[in-house]
Write a protein that binds this DNA or RNA. Structure first.
Lengths: 197, 197
DNA sequence: TAGTCAATATAGACACTGTCAATATCGCAG
DNA sequence: CTGCGATATTGACAGTGTCTATATTGACTA
């Protein structure tokens, strides 16, 4: 008896959300305007304010949802990943890259601090959860050399994010992203994990 | 007799450019509107079109200029960097990070393909030049293992960009970015270059 | 010197945008 | 049936980018 299915429209909040997602995937964050979302949902331009305080709130909700989706994907992949912590840490990287190339506009939104609220508690929580999960796997890697675990985690995530982000901006594309059949991303991860021996 | 110092205002193009830079540094790319730039330059909102076709053209010009500044900084730093190619490649990373943290809004603009034209020939040229310079240093590193040079270059730049970009979005800040006095960025670079032995 | 003309600047319009305030409507509690 | 809170509509306001028509400037030419 809490929230769903009441009042005028039905469940406008959900409709607004999915309309916004569609606009995001199609036209990027710039296409997700309050008014366009309202149009797509078939309501007036003033209606959304009852469910999302402003544009930033709507986009922040979407970002939160994406991180939850990422975590779900990671969890599912880890179930089938065996026990080698190096392979498990690598799964993390693969999932993030897959997500970035599959949903470029969603991925780019995640880091747009001018559009979303990175102080949002829900968002902070889920981001921390993903980061902590990575750290757990990293910590389980047996390593001869003593390297700070956070440094490894930050390095890996940085490399992954940097690669996806730059590729989505059109960089490294002239490099063809292929070398002798193996995607470059695999070669990068090979290189990274070879460090940890 | 070519371009500078003519007509009505004097050299409005330069004035527009530096007004835009000031707005960028102060308020981010979102604050760089054609009309705000025109206001800051003391001309009407329609004046800029004579010098920059549209907002995208103005921002692209700024991006181009920033990459040229980065290349200049790299060149200068390389002059004092000695002959060890590993140190020279590292200089590249240090300069990029310095620039990113010194001018966060300028740095973020460089990768906003919704705001600037990454197909612009001038921009492509200067970006390629910076990348090629990195590759040269990488190629000079003697390595036991045979690793594709582009993979190393892409990995390094990706890690550097990813770290700066995520930090500027507020991530990794709770980690304090310090570990035992040494900045994390140095630890990351240590880790990266330890791979190439 | 007078006149022409391209380069440059202005002013106004149009269609957008986010956000706010006033108003209207719905559906449930009493 | 009566409220009343939650929700939706409408209109307004100040912005924005970009286009068009108009005005001004300065240099070159006859």
């Amino acid at each position: 008896m809490a929230d769903t299915k009441t009042f005028h429209h039905g469940d406008l909040k959900r409709v607004l959300f999915s309309a916004a997602m569609k606009l995001l995937d199609q036209h990027g964050a710039g296409g997700v305007t309050i008014r366009a979302v309202a149009r797509a949902a078939g309501v007036s331009h003033g209606a959304p304010v009852n469910h999302y305080k402003d544009r930033r709130a709507l986009l922040t909700a979407i970002a939160r949802h994406q991180f939850e989706l990422i975590r779900t994907r990671i969890d599912r992949a880890l179930e089938k990943a065996g026990n080698d912590p190096k392979i498990r840490a690598r799964v993390f990287a693969e999932i993030l890259m897959d997500f970035g190339f599959e949903f470029p506009h969603r991925y780019q939104l995640l880091w747009r601090s001018d559009l979303i609220d990175h102080e949002d508690p829900h968002l902070l929580t889920i981001m921390d959860a993903v980061y902590d999960q990575l750290c757990e796997e990293i910590a389980a890697i047996p390593s001869r050399v003593k390297i700070d675990k956070d440094t490894i985690a930050v390095s890996l995530w940085s490399m992954v994010h940097g690669y996806v982000d730059m590729r989505l901006s059109g960089m490294f594309v002239p490099l063809n992203d292929e070398l002798s059949g193996q995607p470059r991303r695999e070669a990068m991860l090979d290189l990274f994990f070879s460090t940890l021996n």
